[in-house]
């Protein structure tokens, strides 16, 4: 996305996208919104672990020049923003139980 000139930068960028996608899916409500079923604890641990591992890998393969770390951090910020916007499209509006049933909770 940003000054993608070498192979390592492409790998880093792809890992970053995948990492953020996995980390966001690892959040229970986003998983439910996307796959219409609740996430299992083991699944969540695996997804999050893989997400963090990919994030670390993405940082590790960056060509070690100061300017490349600035690019990486900028990519990270923008991918999180884009991911949040994408997830908001899948979102289902959750209502509190009393609102669903049309009851007044104070009663």
């Amino acid at each position: 996305m940003l000054s993608v000139t070498s192979f390592s930068e492409v790998i880093s960028f792809l890992c970053l996208i995948l990492a953020i996608a996995l980390l966001s899916i690892g959040v229970g409500k986003h998983f439910k919104d996307c796959f219409k079923k609740p996430i299992k604890e083991r699944q969540q641990r695996m997804i999050r672990g893989l997400g963090w591992a990919l994030l670390m890998l993405s940082l590790a393969v960056v060509n070690p020049l100061p300017i490349n770390y600035v690019i990486w951090l900028t990519q990270l910020s923008l991918i999180i923003l884009i991911q949040a916007v994408v997830l908001s499209r899948f979102q289902t509006i959750r209502k509190k139980p009393h609102l669903k049933l049309g009851r007044n909770p104070s009663r």
Binding site: L23, S24, V27, K29, H30, I80, Q83, A84, V85, L87, S88, Q91, I93
Partner: peptide, 10 residues
């Protein structure tokens, strides 16, 4: 806690 959440409807 609510990472990546934007509630568009409200």
């Amino acid at each position: 806690k609510d990472f990546f959440t934007i509630r568009r409807g409200e």
